[in-house]
Every structure is written in C-alpha cells, then in structure tokens.
C-alpha cells in the first residue's frame, strides 16, 4: 500500500518539529484529518501570522510584535538590573517565578565553539552599551558547562564597565532531599551556602523578606 502524497508530506513536515517522532507525526496527521476545515485553517493561519508579526526586540532581543518589547517599554520595571538569559523561553520562566522586576537581555544561545557558536553569533555586543556603572547584571544562563563559560565570558566583559555582576545560585531545588541530590549539585549547595545568622560585630538589621534568607552573607568554604 502506498500512502497519499499529501498525507506523507504532512507527516514529514510534522515529524520535523522537535520532540515529535514519526509515530506521533502520523497520529497527529490522522487527528488533523478528522478536524473541521476551519480548525486547520486557523492553525495554518496562526503559523503564518506568528512568522509575519513576530521579531526580536531591538533592545533586549526578546520576542515581540511591537517596536520594543513589553518589558523594555514598561517604565515601571526596575531599569537598574538586567538579567541575561539564553533564550526567550527563559524570560517566560523567570516572569512566572514572580521574583524579578528588572530588564532582560536574551543572548539567543550559549558559547559553543564546537557547534560554531562564538561571541559574534550571540547578541552580546548590543548588551554592552546598555550597562551603566553600578548597574547590576544577573547572569542567568543555564548551569551547564556552556552556560558557565558564557557567564564567565560576560563577567570579564562587564566588570571593566563597572557593573555589579552576579550569577544565579547553584543549589538544591526547593522540595529536595539531600539523599536524592547528585553529588555535584550537593557540593555546590554546600560551597554556596549562605550565612543566616547575623555577624556579631556588624550591627546591620537583618532584612525580613518572606524567604528569610535575603540578607544572608556567604561564608568561607571549609575544606
């Protein structure tokens, strides 16, 4: 039995989508066959109009359909912090956490020489004029070797500009048990531990934000 070319064509196009194997593509194609024409047209239309309308924000390289993205054009966001992330999806993840009110900068990748990705392939150059003396830049690339390398590279570029450069914390996920943590993460959780008691000498008042840890200071690593 030969399959109709337009069925084969649809299955082939669907199986190009990431995370959709040939079997899922086939199931999707049969599912779509059963849908009313309007639904298919709406899906096709959504694909085309997304491609037509969306582009990257010229300031932060987040995805937008406007001249500037929603964060860059919101004066209520804290203009004094920039959080640097790998991908537009990371912006959504951070926004969902509700813990951040500053600006973003989306690199669209990580340094990976063996995949031909050097600094010039990432949106690094346009980040530099955005950074002011004393401004904080949070390096929120992934905690992989590639994410670390990209963060270290940026750190070297940003320090001479007088930026306060920080890195998101490595450690145990919330709800975790030591027993189930891998040894690398556990090691980082120990070396990155934060002082929670007040240093006896300094009479600074302890900050009282809701996680009870905001005012912590790091302690030297015991070996």
């Amino acid at each position: 039995m030969k399959y109709p070319p337009s069925l084969v064509g649809l299955i082939r196009e669907l199986s190009r989508l990431p995370g959709i194997g040939p079997k899922s593509a086939q199931r999707l194609a049969f599912h779509l066959f059963d849908q009313p024409r309007e639904d298919i047209e709406r899906l096709a239309g959504a694909l085309l109009s997304a491609k037509r309308d969306l582009h990257t924000c010229p300031v932060c390289f987040n995805i937008t359909d406007a001249e500037r993205c929603d964060v860059c054009s919101d004066p209520a966001r804290d203009q004094n912090v920039i959080c640097v992330v790998e991908e537009p999806g990371d912006v959504i993840a951070i926004e969902r956490s509700g813990e951040y009110r500053g600006l973003y900068h989306v690199l669209h990748g990580v340094l990976s020489p063996m995949n031909g990705v050097g600094p010039e392939r990432l949106h690094i150059r346009p980040l530099l004029p955005r950074v002011q003396e004393g401004q904080e830049v949070i390096l929120a690339t992934g905690t992989t070797v590639e994410g670390d390398a990209t963060a270290l590279y940026l750190q070297r570029l940003l320090e001479p500009l007088g930026a306060v450069v920080s890195r998101i914390a490595y450690g145990l996920p919330v709800g975790g048990a030591l027993e189930y943590a891998d040894e690398v993460t556990l090691g980082r959780a120990l070396t990155g531990r934060q002082r929670v008691s007040q240093p006896p000498a300094s009479p600074l008042p302890r900050r009282d934000d809701e996680d009870g840890q905001g005012g912590s200071v790091p302690v030297p690593t015991p070996r």
């Binding site: 390398a149 963060a151 270290l152």
Partner: peptide, 8 residues
C-alpha cells in the same frame, strides 16, 4: 574549562 582562556 569554562574559563574563557581555556574553554575554546
């Protein structure tokens, strides 16, 4: 190995 002068 993540340091810029070693990574590449």
């Amino acid at each position: 190995l993540a340091e810029p002068e070693r990574y590449a």
